[in-house]
Computed example of a mutant assay.
Amino acid sequence: MIVLIDMGNSRVKYCTSVQGKLTPINVVDNKEFTCRLFENQFHKSSKVIIASVGDKHLTDALFDWCKANNISYQEISSEKQKNGVVNGYQVPAQLGVDRWLGLLGAAANFANKNVLIVDSGTATTIDFLGADGQHHGGWILSGINTLVTGIIANTSYVKANSNEPVSLSFGANTSENVHNAAWAATVGSVNVGISQIQHQGINLDEVVFTGGNALKLSSLINYQNKVIPELVFHGLQSYI
């Protein structure tokens, strides 16, 4: 049994790969990612593969636990190329590993296809993967919640609820204005990305959403799209 782990800024997602098939994804807060969890969940594993943009103290604790229990440990970093996918960054290691794994996951799901990948979590990232495996770069913008909390934190009189429904309509109060604008800005970025690809005369085969806001965001995009919550884990499977 091989454990695959995607560690973000606030949450850890993990599953296992058994004979090439992924088990359901588990999600815990970073503060719950402790030796007790390792003992309960990972003790039968032969190898742990992790990609992290989170706290190094947590990955260090996992490494020490794996070493003490004779379990193979591998931490993934972004590379120049793998499995026919070519990193578009001038310095490949500077591409976030979650984005790198999203590219690998998209290539595994959509071989020889032009794919726009949208990962919507704490940040929203948008990346274009060409049919030839070339990564053509992308964008990083604040995630929906970060957009909302950012404007609240930096203005004195702007207040917003935390439970506004998803909408692109013009708001009738300040809370709706803030939330709806966050969705509109994100949808606008995705639509500009689609337009840029099309204006280059490229046939965009797939738009893929992943991340915590994937389902909500995908419903606001008119272009045909797919939601693959486990996309990063498909990328992690490339390292088994």
Results as ranks from 00 to 15, higher is better:
239 Y>D: 05
150 G>N: 15
127 D>R: 01
37 L>K: 07
97 V>M: 07
239 Y>Q: 07
162 S>Y: 06
30 N>M: 11
117 I>L: 08
71 I>H: 04
156 S>W: 06
224 Q>A: 15
91 V>A: 09
78 S>E: 05
178 V>W: 06
145 N>G: 07
108 A>G: 09
14 Y>L: 04
6 D>C: 00
93 A>I: 14
102 G>T: 00
170 F>P: 04
146 T>Q: 13
30 N>F: 05
54 G>H: 09
106 A>P: 01
158 V>G: 04
164 E>C: 08
168 L>Y: 04
226 K>C: 02
163 N>R: 07
46 S>M: 10
85 V>L: 07
80 K>A: 13
45 S>H: 08
196 Q>S: 08
131 A>F: 10
220 L>V: 13
200 Q>K: 15
43 H>S: 14
41 Q>L: 10
101 L>F: 06
93 A>M: 06
47 K>A: 10
203 N>V: 06
125 T>R: 04
157 Y>P: 00
132 D>M: 07
89 Y>I: 08
127 D>F: 01
217 L>M: 15
3 V>A: 11
167 S>W: 05
188 G>T: 13
7 M>Q: 15
57 H>Y: 04
13 K>D: 05
184 A>Y: 13
139 W>A: 08
141 L>M: 15
84 G>L: 13
210 T>A: 01
224 Q>Y: 05
73 Y>Q: 06
161 N>Y: 06
103 L>A: 02
170 F>R: 10
135 H>V: 07
